[in-house]
Design a binder for these strands. Sequence first.
DNA 1: GCCAACGTTGGC
DNA 2: GCCAACGTTGGC
Length: 151
Amino acid sequence: MRYWLMKSEPSEVSIDDLARMPKKTVPWFGVRNYQARNFMRDEMQVGDPVLFYHSSCEEPGIAGIAKVASKPYPDDTQFDPKGKYFDPKSSRENPRWIHVDVQLVKKTRLIGLPELREHKALADMRILQRGNRLSITPVTPEEWAFIESLL
DNA sequence: GCCAACGTTGGC
DNA sequence: GCCAACGTTGGC
């Protein structure tokens, strides 16, 4: 089992949107970065715990806890020519973009970026490194435990 | 809206 | 295979 952090823009899917979904589950559509895709395709196991992170918004930070809720399968949005996630180089026969479903475990208080930065125990988190852009990153068991202790 | 950092593309 | 140009991300 591994721990993860997954970024979502609240304008796309917020923690409250997730809570309103049937089964509180959403396909993690729209990832178009190979490293992030490979984490979902190759490394994630059903049940892996996930920190749900709000990015590109007024108050970026950890908004809740979720978990991996499916095995990897193709992201439908890559096949929709009208959608913003369409990929003309992908095909049903040979899909390029693979994702998993993510299910809400619980909404938490928002642990904002400034608060995360205060803690030395979290200094190495990928999300806190300058220039970080990767939307899915592994979290160490120590980091996970520390963040849980903040809730 | 700005801009630094990074990934991708494409010409050579 | 290199690398400049370009596009995107994401915090501020």
